[in-house]
Design a binder for these strands. Sequence first.
DNA 1: ATGGTGGTACAACCA
Length: 269
Amino acid sequence: MHLKITTWNINSVRLRLDQVGRALDEIGPDILCLQETKCPDNCFPLEGLRAFGYPHIAQVGQKGYNGVAILSRFPFASVDPQAWCERSDARHIAVTLGPEAGKAAGFVVHNFYVPAGGDLPDPEINPKFAHKLQFLDEMRRWGRTREARPAILVGDLNVAPLEHDVWSHKQLLDVVSHTPIEIETLETLREEGGWIDGARRLTPEPTKIYTWWSYRSPNWAIANKGRRLDHAWLSSDLAGTLRSVDVHAATRSWTRPSDHVPVTASLEL
DNA sequence: ATGGTGGTACAACCA
């Protein structure tokens, strides 16, 4: 059995509903995890998304900011949103796949939107950066006690951990998303949690991988100053099932695009 | 060193 799971920071699900449909058509995943839906629960376009062939949707939203959603061809056995840093800011939702998912039954899918962290990489003077570090630290503690079962963790983790996950390692060492403290925290939590970095398992360094290009660069494609902020991790028991990880960079050239592009992991179970 | 763009929602905040 093939299992395909896509993660995409959509930066407003209502504004880009048609783009979600197009991406689902072209990629054809079993599960799509969205971040930055930017949509309160009572405005979430449930019916529009279901019409794309994904009848099962779990989501948590809030007005204006954040928000995560999981669309699935398979029913869920359970849905578990979680609050982090004692805030109710819609940055995580998890589902457990039901028996209808066949060999993937019982798999847990975690969808995260880690805080971006503001501009200044100093937790003493920038509370947003302090929040980001606290969030990652909480993920680390959570991962240590996670139940041992097949799991997939995806999302916009807002950290580009490796040298070739950014266009210039040296120039970004002081830039939030690539500072040593964030990298250390993310890599430690990934290793302690027993997670495998899907994209890098199949495409090791020094090949560059980017999933995000800033809106602020008009010549983003030519300049190509990207970062790999979006990740697909597998629990170690799924390591042997990973067949491909694709970055759908073409969506960045669509009209009125998200600044992030979809990332798809394909598993053979 | 600065400002560059985009989304929400309508001023200011976040990315």
